[in-house]
């Protein structure tokens, strides 16, 4: 039922080039996603080589220049310049670093917290489980954005604080998934056997239970990266993100907002970057899900239901 609800799995009986073309066509969405994501990763890693200009270099006599193809634009600044005459393309390329690293690191932080708590609750059950469940309920009741905004306003906006705040406020998703799965897995034969052989709880959780959750977590984590990128951009948009002059997409969108009616490109290109990056990562996540764990479809709806962002 689930498989039919999604894209049909590639048939293995085909042969030769035709088979590969067919496969590629069937996987066109995840492939597009992988390409988009790849472009972003390359931009983030190779920013110093790819960016045509220093993203911080100002030239206030050449400010608010339109993109190259518009009247008054020049090939020196392909996407034009911002209010301080900084090259927009270079800032977007460097902005990929902030968005991508913030997204990935926040997911790592929240994943470690969430998975850890989920394993503990699911494996030990009883009181530990009750505590974990309570913590999840409390976190889920907070208006997430408000919590994050307040925490950052109190702690001061910086890259480190953003990663911490995003991580610390978004972990319940992992806990819910991991706890539910652990409850099931801990009763399976191989776990019972390991326990009978005198394996410690920590060892069993890490060696036997966690590997069984790997594909689920990979899918969930990749989709969460996309969500974190949007959240980070919104914090920056409100002026509570990575402080300037460091280029970040959300911050650029916020700065360009005032020019929306005339110099539309200043806010449009960073907005587009956020959109494409999020889309690419979501496609990859969806593709991974279909490949690794089609069963996840329903629980992912649960994930979306749990999302607070």
């Amino acid at each position: 039922m689930q498989a039919s609800a999604g894209r049909p799995m590639p048939r293995v009986s085909d042969r030769g080039a035709a088979r590969w073309i067919r496969l590629a066509w069937q996987l066109r969405v995840p492939i597009c996603g992988a390409l988009l994501t790849g472009v972003m990763v390359v931009a983030a890693l190779g920013a110093p080589y790819l960016a045509p200009h220093d993203p911080l270099q100002q030239e206030i006599t050449a400010r608010l220049r339109p993109p190259a193809w518009m009247e008054g634009g020049s090939p020196t600044h392909l996407l034009g310049t911002d209010a301080l005459g900084r090259d927009l393309l270079s800032r977007i390329v460097y902005g990929a670093r902030v968005s991508l690293t913030a997204g990935v690191l926040a997911v790592v932080v929240s994943g470690i917290i969430g998975v850890g708590l989920g394993l503990l609750g699911g494996y030990f059950g009883g009181r530990a489980d009750a505590v974990v469940n309570g913590a999840v309920s409390i976190m889920m009741a907070f208006p997430f954005m408000l919590l994050a905004l307040t925490a950052i306003a109190v702690a001061g906006p910086s890259f480190r604080n953003i990663v911490i705040v995003l991580g610390v406020t978004t972990w319940p998703i992992y806990t819910r998934v991991v706890r539910a799965e652990t409850l099931v897995i801990r009763e399976r034969e191989f776990v019972l056997a390991a326990r009978a052989l005198g394996g410690g709880a920590g060892r069993i959780m890490l060696r036997h239970i966690l590997p069984n959750l790997a594909s689920t977590l990979l899918v969930l984590g990749s989709l969460e990266v996309a969500r974190m990128i949007i959240l980070e951009s919104f914090l920056s948009f409100l002026g509570l993100g990575v402080p300037p002059p460091t280029p970040s997409w959300g911050g650029m969108l916020g700065e360009g907002r005032i020019h929306m009616l005339s110099k539309w490109w200043i806010a449009t290109f960073p907005g587009l970057a956020i959109f494409l990056a999020t889309l690419g990562i979501t496609f990859v996540g969806d593709g991974l899900r279909d490949l690794l764990d089609p069963r996840l479809k329903d629980s992912l709806l649960g994930r979306e239901a749990a999302g607070q962002g």
Binding site: M140, F142, P143, F144, L146, F234
Partner: peptide, 29 residues
């Protein structure tokens, strides 16, 4: 799902009230 999404909805009011100067609690916050 709607019940569970209520928090997300209120989170969304922060964005929305900011952009539209909606005189609500999120804007105040």
């Amino acid at each position: 799902v709607v019940g569970l999404q209520f928090g997300r909805l209120l989170g969304g009011t922060i964005v929305t009230e900011t952009v539209f100067a909606w005189p609500g609690a999120a804007n105040l916050a």
